[in-house]
């Protein structure tokens, strides 16, 4: 028997497919962040004022805070099941670069939890009085922001997977790192609304995203290797 070694890209694709298949069978868990996002943003007009011109002032910020918390909600369980049933052990031993496999897993996680937030944001934003002219900037900023958050969260989740009740620790680790995203993201929306060019904050968001994309896999694989030592 001569075995053909799986190319790394194909292996990463398998990890991605596997998580999609699993999510399809457990869709209720996957839908949770999206429901949280919609519920939180609809509560703001009820609690403050139904006056759209007043809501418009805070709308961008509200959408961003809700998206941030919603993605955090889904992060804690990211690696837990795989570490507990020994799957990550096999990934470490697969002879494939671990960072790519973990990045594929995070990508699947983003498609399932981050992308729906981006797609829903125009509808949610309209409820908060955001004009159609900011839809593009809102979605683009969230696209970069949730992507970065998934990677940062992946590092945090990999570090805390061995810790019992790691969710508090995870929030403490990830939230400070997410602050620049929140600031630049809501600033981009506000600038677009005021008629300024939002290019500056968007470029900064993109820079942070690419930094996370390039360094994240290294950090995640180091953290997971420590987690499987026990």
């Amino acid at each position: 028997m001569t075995a053909v070694r799986t190319p790394t890209l194909a292996a990463a694709k398998l990890v991605f497919q596997r998580d999609m298949t699993l999510a399809w069978r457990r869709w209720d868990e996957v839908a949770q962040p999206l429901i949280f996002y919609v519920v939180v943003t609809t509560m703001f007009p009820l609690a403050t004022t139904p006056d759209l011109s007043a809501l418009r002032q805070i709308g961008g910020g509200v959408v961003w805070v809700a998206a941030l918390l919603a993605s955090l909600l889904a992060l804690e369980a990211l690696f837990r099941a795989d570490v507990e049933d020994g799957t990550t052990e096999q990934w470490v031993l697969s002879g494939q670069p671990l960072g790519y496999l973990l990045l594929a897993k995070v990508a699947a996680h983003w498609v399932l939890t981050g992308l729906p937030l981006v797609i829903m944001s125009p509808i949610v934003g309209t409820g908060l009085g955001l004009p159609t002219s900011v839809w593009g900037v809102l979605m683009l900023s969230l696209l970069l922001g949730t992507g970065t958050l998934s990677i940062l969260g992946g590092i945090g989740a990999a570090l805390t997977v061995g810790v019992r009740r790691g969710s508090v620790l995870l929030s403490l680790l990830v939230l400070p790192l997410a602050m620049p995203l929140l600031i630049f993201g809501s600033r981009a929306v506000a600038m677009q609304m005021d008629g300024d060019s939002p290019a500056g904050p968007l470029q900064l968001l993109a820079a942070i995203f690419f930094m996370a994309l390039s360094l994240g896999p290294l950090a995640m694989s180091a953290a997971i290797r420590i987690s499987v030592e026990n």
Partner: peptide, 22 residues
């Protein structure tokens, strides 16, 4: 055993053993 309860036996092999060899 490194198995996923929600996946079938075939899928478990495809997604885990498949990482090493085609």
């Amino acid at each position: 055993n490194s198995l996923k309860g929600d996946l079938t036996a075939r899928e478990n092999l495809k997604f885990l053993a498949g990482l090493r060899t085609t």
